[in-house]
Computed example of a mutant assay.
Amino acid sequence: METLTAIQTELGILQGRDCVYLNTLIQDDFGQLTLSGDINGHLIYNNTNKKDWISYQLVFQQVLAYFSCELDTYEMIENNADYQSSFVMVNASRWIEKLPIRKDIDCSLYKHYRFYTYDFVYDILAVDFQMTIDY
């Protein structure tokens, strides 16, 4: 059964629809997906940084697949309205289990990440991610 685990960023746990704003999304030819924008400092659980808005860049490495959907529509898909954070790991992912992945790819390396922004939700299968915060 799928479960969600909030990802602890260096700022804390990102929470709420108004927490993450996306300005750009870039997919490159090397399997990287880069998202950048701003985080509402007032909607970070355990936030020690007192800034109102904090710029971020989130880079997913070795992306196998990603899916995006408008937030309100996404919440109606299979009861996806129950989330504890704007950035989570999907454990025991049904998507990884059902995706017809090539036989030469080691599926055990991939993780399922979910990133909720103000307008869209992104499900991403990637080996890893790196988040850079601009204080």
Rank of each mutant, 00 (worst) to 15 (best):
L71Q: 11
E78T: 08
N79G: 10
G37A: 07
W53K: 14
S36D: 04
Q32I: 02
L58W: 06
M89C: 13
E70C: 13
D104M: 03
F67M: 08
I101V: 03
N47D: 04
I54H: 10
R94P: 05
M89V: 09
L43K: 13
Q61H: 09
I77Y: 07
Y113D: 01
Q32G: 00
S85F: 05
R102F: 00
M89K: 15
F67S: 01
Y66K: 05
V90K: 07
F67G: 14
Q57D: 03
L43S: 14
K98A: 08
Q62N: 13
Y56K: 08
R102L: 06
Y113A: 01
C69E: 04
C107W: 14
N80E: 13
H42W: 09
V59C: 13
T48R: 11
I44W: 04
Q84E: 13
W53V: 14
I44F: 00
S85P: 03
E70S: 15
L33N: 05
N79F: 04
G41S: 02
V63C: 03
Y45A: 13
Y56S: 01
C69V: 11
A81Q: 11
L99A: 01
G37T: 09
N46E: 07
L35R: 07
V59W: 00
G41I: 05
S55V: 14
Q57N: 10
Y56D: 12
C69L: 12
F60E: 07
W53H: 12
V88E: 15
Y45D: 09
K98M: 09
S85Y: 10
Q61L: 08
A92C: 09
R94E: 11
N40K: 02
N46R: 07
Q57K: 10
Y56L: 10
I77R: 02
N49C: 04
N91W: 07
L43I: 01
L58E: 04
I77Q: 06
Y83E: 15
A65E: 00
N47V: 01
N91I: 09
